[in-house]
């Protein structure tokens, strides 16, 4: 599974492109990093890949995941996972139900689904927190739960929008390791937007400066 961006550019209401056309290929298990000053459209790029662009934006170029063109698919059919800086857990659901929301439909039967959720929680060091209110978890726990929720949906690619910037330094490196390890194990391509050069270094993949527009 490879994520291929070819000459990708986004314009707002027919204006000039937000950033120079971007061409980038992310290999399975690799984490590519996009850097650049704020306001240049890093998050918009992720929106374009994930299928979340607001009305008025137009996208040019091609975005292919494993050969299939993503641009014509609605967000829910792209199978591109999304991680935010504050975890984005659904506030009305318990931690376990958040994971169950993500868990692929392929897993059938109440018992099997519950077991899958419990196993994912365990892997994230969250065993026994299934019934908890997500708002009562620590920042690191929330991020790990969110990653598990995303992975349970069996995404074919992952987008990370400044995923660690809210955490303090110690937690950050721990969570980085945790996240990247899971991406490698799943063998899916990932694209990360960050301000933090250490994030980029730890990711180990190609680094793109969005102002320059080339890998």
């Amino acid at each position: 599974m490879t994520l291929d961006l070819h000459d990708v550019a986004v314009t707002w209401k027919g204006g000039a492109p937000l950033f120079p056309p971007l061409t980038l290929s992310v290999q399975p298990g690799e984490v590519a990093t996009v850097m650049g000053p704020s306001g240049i459209g890093k998050s918009t790029l992720l929106d374009a890949i994930g299928g979340h662009l607001a009305h008025g934006f137009a996208l040019s170029g091609s975005i292919r995941l494993d050969g299939t063109d993503l641009t014509t698919l609605p967000a829910e059919a792209r199978r591109v996972g999304l991680m935010f800086q504050d975890a984005g857990l659904f506030p009305h659901l318990s931690v376990g139900d958040n994971l169950a929301f993500g868990l692929a439909r392929r897993v059938r039967g109440r018992a099997a689904r519950r077991a899958a959720v419990a196993e994912a929680l365990e892997r994230a060091g969250l065993a026994g927190l299934s019934d908890r209110d997500p708002a009562t978890l620590s920042g690191g726990q929330q991020s790990r739960a969110a990653l598990m929720r995303t992975l349970l949906a069996e995404p074919r690619a992952l987008l990370l929008d400044e995923p660690f910037s809210r955490l303090d330094a110690a937690l950050r490196s721990e969570l980085r390791r945790f996240t990247f390890e899971h991406i490698r194990r799943r063998n899916i391509p990932a694209l990360m937007v960050t301000h933090d050069a250490v994030d980029a270094e730890a990711a180990g993949g190609p680094v793109v400066d969005l102002t320059a527009g080339a890998a």
Binding site: G51, H52, E76, R79, F90, P91, H92, F101, G102, P155
Partner: peptide, 25 residues
């Protein structure tokens, strides 16, 4: 806006996003 987006990225279509995320929240 990240809640419905997260739901979409998890494969939830527009109706499921409305009924199980937006309306309860």
């Amino acid at each position: 806006p990240r809640l419905p987006r997260a739901a979409a990225s998890l494969g939830a279509g527009p109706w499921r996003r409305l009924v199980s995320v937006k309306l309860p929240v």
